[in-house]
Structures are given as C-alpha cells and as structure tokens.
C-alpha cells in the first residue's frame, strides 16, 4: 500500500469518527454506507491533495469512490495535473 493510500485511510477513519475501525484499500466505503454522499466532497478534496491533481466535476460517480484503491485509480484516470 502506498503512503498516500495509508494517509487516505487515516483521513477517512478520522472523518467518519471511527478510529478503531479496520479498513483496507478494498473495503467498500460508499456502497457499505461507511462514507455517505455528504462526506464524499471532503474525501474528494483530500484525494486531490494527495495526488496533486484536480478531478473535473462530472467525471466521477460515487461508485468510482467506493474503495481507496478505486479512488486512486479514478484520480489517475481523470485527474488533471494542478496548475
């Protein structure tokens, strides 16, 4: 697991206030209801920071953010380098 993925997991656990929960890169987050759509906006900002990209609105659906692995794959697929 990359450092960025670890940081993302840490961030998500903090955000959902479940520091003791164990999740890995493939734990479903959105479909399981752990991360609701209201929290996705913050997760998106963190993903952009960690990958130093800008992810265009409209290019991502909640299912693209379902696991930490999918988030990074999405950033790689649609993210644009920051100006």
């Amino acid at each position: 697991m990359t450092d960025e993925a670890k940081q993302m997991i840490e961030y998500i656990l903090k955000r959902i206030r479940k520091p003791t929960l164990v999740i890995d890169e493939d734990t479903p987050l959105v479909s399981s209801g752990l991360v609701d759509s209201m929290a996705l906006g913050e997760v998106m900002l963190t993903l952009e920071d960690l990958t130093n990209t800008r992810i265009p609105p409209g290019a991502v659906k909640p299912k693209d953010m379902d696991t930490v692995a999918k988030m990074f794959a999405t950033a790689q697929r649609v993210g644009k380098p920051r100006k």
Partner: peptide, 10 residues
C-alpha cells in the same frame, strides 16, 4: 447541475 455532481464537488 446534477445534485450528485454538486455533492461530490460542492
């Protein structure tokens, strides 16, 4: 815009 796009990118 779509509500879903907005909620991911407020």
């Amino acid at each position: 815009q779509s509500p879903l796009d907005w909620v991911i990118h407020p």
